[in-house]
Design a protein around this nucleic acid. Structure first.
Lengths: 180, 180
DNA sequence: CGTCGATGTAGACACTGTCTACGGCGGATG
DNA sequence: CATCCGCCGTAGACAGTGTCTACATCGACG
């Protein structure tokens, strides 16, 4: 055995991205942190990208957990607000991980992980946004996109420049999508 | 003279990103394409990041031009649709450039360029979305975020998986933001 | 004509991801 | 018990990268 090293490499990457950002995730640095030589990761991950994808996967799980942790009020507006705040809060608190999770190159072979992570989010959004509509899935996807776009804008500081913040934009997005 | 080389390096980068994607923009490859040694760019751009930022800047200009090219119909819904399609079309046609333009590391010192590029877009959005509202700027920003999020989702193929497409999501976003 | 600053060259350096040969160790097999 | 064999990590090589520094070249100007 064992895939002990495999897990150790992933957690080393998770720590690294939290401490030093998504730019510090070189293969050799992760190996160094895990206490092995630079060739060792290759036994578990064929390529650097695969290791990064595995690290991003725990990001998806953490985001899912955070979104699931909220308890439904029953009132759509309050629930949407709580959900959106969880999402935006994650993008703020785990910024490096969030960047990693949605890197273009990584999403190539990883989009099924994204889908798996966003499926529960989707179901909740469908319940909250359009319980009877035939296009409820489209509405949920569009709101998802809105949420993600707000997170992005907030992350690279384009919002303070305009004189607003992510929470205010979340409110106006909810207003827009809730006016049935 | 001359800042001839400066311009040549930028256009070399623009060609390169169009042909081989945003991952092919190494400093040395750009220099090679411009026909100079790998040390030459340093005279004009202190660092690799600065060169990339200059390349992204022509992307901002192209996007602005594309958005400005549309002629207003006068009808908000049709105008929003045309505007959104221009944005989404750019993200599809100039994918590598679009990725480059919104890279996290680049936007550090470049966000004023983003702002300059998005200012005209903003004004149009304010006119179309909420001509009389006090929170018109927030509505415009939120719709901007929605548009951008849709472009992102479309780019990494998450939409076909759900069984929809960017244009359909654009329609539902417009529906949401145009109700009242 | 001589000097000097600007501009590009060439090489070094540390670092990266990938590939390959090798060593050691444990467990299965004879 | 002895002997393989396969797994797993090591170590070095290789090409490529961004940055830095010494050097060459060339044109303008006093």
């Amino acid at each position: 055995m064992s895939d002990d090293l495999r897990a150790r490499l992933v957690t080393a990457g998770v720590e690294l991205v939290a401490e030093r950002g998504s730019g510090a995730l070189s293969l050799r640095e992760i190996a160094r942190r895990a206490g092995v030589s630079h060739g060792a990761p290759r036994r578990w991950f064929p390529t650097h990208r695969d290791l990064l994808a595995a690290i991003a996967r725990v990001g998806y799980e953490r985001l899912s957990a955070r979104l699931a942790a909220r308890e439904p009020h029953g009132e759509p507006r309050a629930d949407l607000l709580a959900l959106g705040r969880s999402y935006l809060g994650f993008s703020r608190d785990e910024r490096g991980m969030f960047e990693l999770m949605f890197r273009h190159e990584l999403l190539r072979g990883n989009q099924q992980d994204v889908r798996a992570a966003s499926r529960p989010l989707f179901r909740v959004l469908i319940d909250l946004l359009g319980p009877g509509r035939p296009d409820a899935d489209k509405v949920a996807a569009a709101f998802w996109a809105n949420l993600h776009g707000i997170a992005q804008l907030g992350m690279w500081g384009s919002l303070e420049v305009i004189g607003t913040n992510a929470d205010a934009l979340l409110h106006t997005a909810i207003d827009a999508y809730l006016e049935h």
